[in-house]
Every structure is written in C-alpha cells, then in structure tokens.
C-alpha cells in the first residue's frame, strides 16, 4: 500500500466509524430524550382521530405524503416531498454497496437511478433558491440552514459526477471497501494500522467524506425532525381524553376531591 493510498484508506475507514458512532449515539440520545421527557396533558390538534389506528394512519399520511404541509404551501410541498422521496430512493439504491446479495428492488431502481439523482439535485436547488428568495424564510434562516442544503447539494452533485468519465470510480473496489467496513471486525484491524483498501478516486473520497460530515452533524441539528416527528404531542396523542384518563407523569395521583362542603360555602 502506497503512502497516499494508506492515508486515504485510514482516513476514510476511521471517519466511517467515527461518523456512524456519532450519528447513532447522538440520534439515540436525542430520541431517548424526546421519549423520556414527560408530556403532562393531552394536546392533540384536531381533527385528530379518536383511536390508535386512526392516529397511526394520520401520522403515516404526514410521513409519507406530507399531509399537513400540503395544506399550506404548494411549492414547498412539492419540492420538499420530491426531495425526501428521491433521497429515500437514492438511499435504497445505495444498499447495493452494503449488501453482499443485491435485492431485486435495488436492481430495478437502476433503470431510473440517474433520473432520480437529477430530480433530487433539482429539488435541493429549488429549496435553496426558495430559502434565499422568500423574505419570510430569510428572516429566520441562519448559517446552519444554508449549510445543510449546501452540504446535501455537494453530496448529490459529487455522487452524480461519479456516473461520468473521468470521475468513474472502481465500483467493485468501493463495494469491497464497504462490505469490509460494515463488518465490525474491520474496526479492530484499524488498530493494527491495516485499514481496508479504499479505491483511489478523489471524487469518491470527497463524496463519502461529505456524507460523514452530514452524519456527524445530523444529531446536533434540525435534521432531528426525522426522529422528533414521532414524539410531537399534537400528532401522536389519541383524541380521547374524556373516555380514557390520561395520566400526567409528574402528577399521577388521582384527583382527591373529598366531600368538604367547601363547594356550598361562601367563598367571598
């Protein structure tokens, strides 16, 4: 292994473990915080279904089809939804690098992969332009909001470039690297300074390092909406407080109303 290749390999390998660790640990920590923080009262936002099945259905509509967003802003709804769905497809498509046997669905997506990739890029650009042009959004936007969009744009852009010469990487080599990295045993071989071999392709290196940055940034950012949505009390709570007593985690005792005669007394 030459010097440069060794450095790239060890950088990519160690960053892989670091970023995956930070992402998982951070994500789990934040979600456990959402989970464990008590919600004292029932605050579903009607029309909220009155049974669990209905609530699951409504939430699925929010997650899969952006139900509530669709009520307000057409451009944002379309751009946002297309971005999320194409990102999902692209993510599924990337499974081929991590699974020894590639599932049929992933193979099928190869017909539309390029098209999906460009739609993904386009939707991100639309979202970025909207964030720059719409005065209402500009008012609350901070560096971090632009940072996430730019980061995603760079990731998608470098990913797309790799489909074309002269940026084409050694796909078989990448798959070999990934399969090794997802094997936990590889983590220990890092300690002996024997990292798995990363294909020499700077576009690939940029692409994957940007993804690592995204993973590390994720749990500290607004991207936590991915997990946080499921803990949003206006959405997950069932609308039945009259028929089923909801217990406040920090005020569990049933109300103590002794017959005091107080109710009939003069209180003035």
């Amino acid at each position: 292994m030459g010097g440069m290749t060794f450095l790239t390999s060890i950088a990519i390998s160690s960053l892989f473990y670091l970023s995956v660790f930070v992402f998982l640990a951070g994500f789990i920590y934040r979600v456990s915080l959402y989970y464990s923080t008590p919600q004292p009262l029932k605050i579903p936002q009607t029309p909220q279904p009155v049974n669990v099945g209905g609530v699951v259905f409504r939430m699925a509509g929010d997650v899969l089809f952006f139900r509530s967003l669709s009520k307000g802003t057409t451009l944002l709804f379309f751009a946002g939804w297309i971005f999320h769905i194409t990102l999902l497809v692209t993510g599924i498509r990337h499974l081929r690098y991590f699974l020894p046997m590639v599932p049929d669905v992933v193979v099928w997506f190869s017909h539309v992969a390029i098209f999906i990739g460009f739609v993904l890029l386009l939707s991100l650009v639309v979202l970025l332009i909207r964030r720059i042009v719409d005065k209402k959004v500009v008012f609350v936007s901070s560096l971090s909001d632009y940072f996430v969009l730019l980061l995603l744009i760079c990731i998608v852009f470098t990913g797309l470039l790799m489909r074309y010469a002269p940026f084409r990487p050694d796909i078989v080599g990448i798959k070999g690297l990934m399969l090794e990295l997802v094997n936990p045993v590889t983590a220990f071989s890092l300690l002996t300074l024997h990292p798995p071999h990363a294909p020499a392709n700077y576009m690939f290196a940029i692409h994957i390092i940007l993804v690592f940055i995204l993973l590390i940034y994720f749990p500290f950012s607004k991207l936590m909406h991915m997990g946080g949505y499921f803990f949003s009390p206006t959405r997950y709570m069932v609308n039945n407080p009259r028929t089923k007593r909801y217990v406040n985690p920090w005020d569990k005792e049933p109300g103590n109303l002794t017959v005091s005669g107080e109710g009939g007394q003069n209180n003035g």
Partner: peptide, 17 residues
C-alpha cells in the same frame, strides 16, 4: 416538564409553512 416544548425546540426546520 413538557415534551411539547422540548421536541418543538428541536425539530423545526424553518420551512416557513
């Protein structure tokens, strides 16, 4: 004390809807 406050502080993406 309020899950609502905790979660709402974190998950806004400032989309402007």
């Amino acid at each position: 004390k309020y899950k609502s406050v905790r979660v709402f502080m974190d998950i806004c993406v400032k989309c402007g809807a």
